[in-house]
Write a protein that binds this DNA or RNA. Structure first.
Lengths: 212, 212
DNA sequence: GTCTATATCATGATAGAC
DNA sequence: GTCTATCATGATATAGAC
């Protein structure tokens, strides 16, 4: 693949990502994307097929590395723990860390990607369902097992409800990180991932910690 | 207002509500709404002006009674508590109870309204911002004060982060209540508000309970 | 591979008859 | 108040020149 291709492709993906994160799938037009990417309208169809395919590519580009990292972190943590359960705080770091790192990392567009992941999971589009299920199911199954060991007395239903609450808190945090200042009347800062991650870990550890 | 008016108006609002809840604002067309409501396409413009006004009316119809109920419950709880803080579990019932009651109540369309509230708060549309701020700010301020008394040692920033996590959990629970079965591979039931509310109260009480 | 030009269609909104 | 008919716009997608 030539260099010019790569740049055009990347510009489209990056422009699409930030617009999808801000406005959602239906709220974003291909014209907005090509305008921001400074490419011709036809380029997106040529490179990515239709709008749905483009959206899935944007998602896949962010979700796959994150879930790979999570699996690798889980591997290492379980090896270190031996027969013992992986500590709760470590599990929650595995859950949230890669997302906040994407948000904060060297890739300045990562924060749009992280926000988009939160948004894509909240508002389901029909054509993303099987894709998202396939992307998350493998690592979520293993993560759930590891987490389950900390609360063996909970019924499966109780466990899943608690897990659902924690996932909701994480997605909400990701989706609002860029406007926390206005949401908190100036008390919290915008994009303050350094504040968010440890507080989330503490929060989530407490939820699954030793309580009735 | 004549009876026929009211029925037409209501049919439009109810149809719009369920479609907005399923597909979001941008994903829903006026034609879908009028088709489901079995009214003419022009009726919605005649009665409600444009699409944005209709959306705001749909939201207002659900949000106003809920926040009024919350304020009344808070009044009563504070009167009962006297100088003492209102118990945490009571506060969380005030936060979540009216929403789950709308979801489960005698109005069979309430569940779409409850889901829409969750969705409207997650994915902000430019033209809803001032409306939503105005609707929630009055009661949220009082609720925050009451909740704050349980964790006076927390910094304002820590407090707001925890509150944000809890709000996110609540919104996520509301937004996914109708598809919990598929999300949990059959373990939780769909629309099981009787399972969700007490578990949320327990969860949220724990988050603000006596922990470091 | 890239762009111009365009085909095709659906949308929100309205004018005007009844 | 309600409906038919229609408008202007902007959407996705593609055909075909270069």
């Amino acid at each position: 693949m030539s260099n010019a291709d790569k740049e055009t492709l990347d510009r489209i993906l990056i422009a699409a990502e930030s617009l999808f994160a801000d406005q959602g799938y239906d709220g974003t037009t291909l014209r907005q994307i090509t305008r921001r990417a400074k490419v011709n309208l036809a380029a997106v169809n040529y490179h990515h097929g239709d709008k749905e395919s483009l959206y899935l590519e944007v998602l896949r580009r962010r979700i796959q590395p994150i879930n790979q990292t999570r699996l690798a972190m889980l591997d290492e943590a379980e090896q270190q723990a031996g027969d013992q359960p992986v500590p709760l705080a470590v599990l929650m770091e595995i859950l949230a860390g890669p997302l906040f790192e994407l948000y904060a990392g060297p890739d300045e567009n990562g924060r749009h990607g992280a926000r988009l992941i939160g948004r894509a999971l909240v508002e389901p589009l029909p054509f993303t369902e099987t894709f998202l299920a396939g992307e998350f199911q493998p690592w979520l199954a293993r993560f759930g097992q590891a987490l389950r060991r900390h609360v063996p007395a909970l019924t499966p239903e109780d466990f899943l409800w608690r897990f659902s609450f924690v996932i909701g808190a994480l997605q909400h945090a990701l989706a609002t990180l860029h406007r926390m200042k206005s949401l908190t009347r100036g008390i919290c800062r915008d994009n303050d991932h350094n504040a968010a991650l440890p507080r989330f870990v503490q929060f989530a550890t407490g939820v699954f910690g030793a309580r009735p």
